[in-house]
Design a binder for these strands. Structure first.
Lengths: 178, 178
DNA sequence: TATCCCATGTAACTAGTTACATGATTCG
DNA sequence: CGAATCATGTAACTAGTTACATGGGATA
């Protein structure tokens, strides 16, 4: 995230815009982590006067930090560690003992994913409109981030379809039970 | 997870079989957590002699624990907290500066998801063969877990499609660059 | 004058991982 | 006889969250 030297505050903005679909972090985690990485020599800092507000602490990548990154990337994909809260809830939903509440749960889920999907598609449309090379001729440092957007769209569309299918099934069960 | 009174060891097995697609936990987290929940009155324990190995500590749900569960389920879906390691890597993959390594990364990813998809489909086939009511007439306490399996299949199929699409795009870029 | 954005952090806590430690029974 | 399974846990550590604390400048 330090291809351009950045402060903790900048890093937070990058999390909130570009990485929000697959990773989040709070400032209270970011600041100590940057300090720790600096003591480990993985990045370096410099103080810079800000145009408004207090002095900025700007961090840059070091050789050793770059090597660590390449090691992580070269070590193969990180998979199988995901924790999906709404599926954990789904698993136990029978214990509500209330078909209507289960349906409400899925309606809320559905509307969340519908909104996310629209947001991602809007983002894609913006990129596409702003850049005639979108998406396949983008330079690498834009192309790979674009892949994460594309993955988000695929996965959220699939999850939305599952919500719809589930709602149909739940309503059918309710009719059968009546 | 304590609809049937269970030991920490049993709970671990439930994580490894039924919940593995959306949540994992180690014994070293499970044992202390069960102890903590007991001190909070959310569950109760009893010692039972085992057929083999040491005495089992078997936990059961309490009224107060059940109430807590219902509260969590009634509070709406937990969303937007997922951390997806392979997308974090994808985002930074340009920094490898090596198109072949990026392709290898996605080939590894693809084969992982292909395998997972087969495993989930096999699981579904088993269930289906073993139970003539599968899936829509299952009783609630089997139906809702089945939904998590179905969601896994939808999402992994979508992710696999994205891997294939990405590989095609990466190979095309390589040709264009040549 | 109130709220938002800039910009930094610490403290207390909760969650989760990896490694260590023990010991019986069963199966190949 | 060795490995796997049953069964319990602790210790040390890393990761992450929530709440607290400060204060200037810009915008409505």
């Amino acid at each position: 995230m330090l291809r351009q030297p950045s402060s903790g505050y900048d890093v937070k903005k990058q999390f909130d815009t570009s990485l929000r679909n697959f990773w989040k972090a709070e400032l209270s985690q970011i600041y100590p982590t940057l300090q720790k990485l600096e003591t480990e020599g993985l990045l370096s800092s410099a103080k810079v006067d800000s145009e408004q507000g207090p002095q900025r602490v700007v961090y840059s990548q070091t050789e050793s930090g770059k090597a660590e990154l390449l090691h992580w990337l070269g070590d193969g994909p990180t998979v199988g560690t995901e924790r999906i809260g709404f599926l954990a809830q789904t698993y136990f939903l029978a214990q509500l003992g209330d078909a209507n509440k289960a349906i409400e749960f899925f309606e809320e889920l559905r509307s969340y994913f519908a909104e996310r999907l629209e947001a991602l598609q809007a983002r894609e449309a913006e990129w596409s409109a702003a850049n005639p090379l979108y998406p396949d001729e983008l330079p690498d440092h834009d192309f790979f981030p674009q892949l994460t957007l594309d993955c988000g769209i695929h996965r959220i569309a699939a999850t939305l379809a599952w919500c719809d299918k589930t709602l149909t099934r739940l309503k059918q069960r309710q009719r059968s039970a009546a």
